[in-house]
Simulated scan of single mutants.
Amino acid sequence: MFRPLVRHHHHPKREGGIMRACAHAWKPGLLLLAGLAGLTALTSGCAPVALLGAGAKTASAASEERGLGGFVDDAAIQTALNGKLFTTNEALFSAVDLTVREGRVLMTGSVPRAEDRLTATRLAWEVTDVREVINELTLRDKNDAVDSGRDLVLSNRLQASLLFATDIRSANYTVDVVNGVVYVMGVAQDATERERVLGYARAVPHVRKVVDYTRLKGEPVPAGGPRS
């Protein structure tokens, strides 16, 4: 059983971690990221742990429907788009959470202005190999801090459900929780498995809505125009 990729609105880059500190050095491509990760591990004295974590992530990626090559391509897209967001507007970079699967970019989070939604969409379409842009950014309000804490609780509960589920291939799904809304991306083996995954999400108490961006195995990857 592989650990599902579950994300929530409370994103590490908003807390001043290493991603934010090193954002000015980001460039498209994975060699730079690998170098930064290796350097961080060595200087912190945690190289064995970092190497084990990287190995586990690689093994999990290889088991997904998109394969290791698809995982690497998606990581390159996410790196390039994060770089564009940061160089354009650091506040926008901090506000936007990205999920990338099979060239499909899902943007969640809250931004202060409607123009920021348009800017984020435009930047996403400037990145090579992006097939679809799904803009679920909302306008920020005073309840965001409270919602962020609640989203963390919801995502932890959903993570536990997916982790111990024996009737789905959880490695094929990515889940993002924002303001009580659960966004699901990934590849389902069949319609029955997809309904099981969505059912797990709906069963989490206090989930307001579940948005399905999955596809069935064998279906073509969506490749539409800008969507905002």
Rank of each mutant, 00 (worst) to 15 (best):
G35R: 10
I77C: 04
P220C: 03
E115T: 15
V207L: 00
G29F: 02
L52D: 12
D97G: 09
E126R: 10
E126F: 02
A75N: 12
T192N: 05
V182Y: 01
V175W: 01
M185V: 03
A80F: 03
L81I: 01
R20H: 14
L118W: 07
A75R: 15
A188M: 00
V6A: 08
K217S: 14
R157G: 11
F86P: 01
A37M: 10
A62F: 11
P4N: 10
K209L: 13
L152P: 02
L163R: 12
K57W: 07
P12V: 06
G149K: 03
V133H: 00
A59V: 01
D129L: 13
A37G: 09
K84Y: 14
V204Y: 05
T166Y: 14
R117E: 12
P28S: 12
R202H: 14
P222H: 05
A114R: 08
R101L: 13
L30M: 14
K142G: 08
A47F: 11
L152G: 14
P12E: 11
A124Y: 05
V177P: 05
H11C: 10
L32I: 03
T99I: 03
D147W: 15
V204I: 04
A201Y: 00
T119S: 02
V221C: 06
G70S: 11
I77V: 11
A41S: 05
T108A: 09
K13W: 03
T138H: 06
N135Q: 03
A76I: 04
Y173C: 07
L152S: 15
K27R: 15
P222V: 04
S60Y: 04
A76E: 15
N82F: 07
V204F: 11
T192L: 04
G69I: 12
L123R: 06
H11D: 09
R113K: 13
V178E: 05
A124N: 04
D116I: 00
P205F: 01
A91K: 11
K217R: 15
A80K: 02
D129Y: 13
G218D: 06
G55W: 06
V72T: 10
R7D: 09
D151A: 03
V6I: 06
T108I: 10
V181Q: 01
H24Q: 09
A80D: 03
A91F: 00
Y213N: 15
A188Y: 00
N82I: 01
K142V: 08
N82H: 11
S148F: 10
N172L: 05
E136C: 11
T99F: 05
T174I: 10
P28G: 09
C46A: 13
V182M: 02
S170F: 00
T119L: 03
K84G: 06
G55P: 01
E15D: 11
R101E: 14
S161Q: 15
N82A: 07
L36I: 12
G224D: 04
E132D: 13
T174S: 10
P28V: 02
G186L: 02
V211R: 01
L36V: 11
L85W: 14
V111Y: 03
L52R: 13
D151P: 00
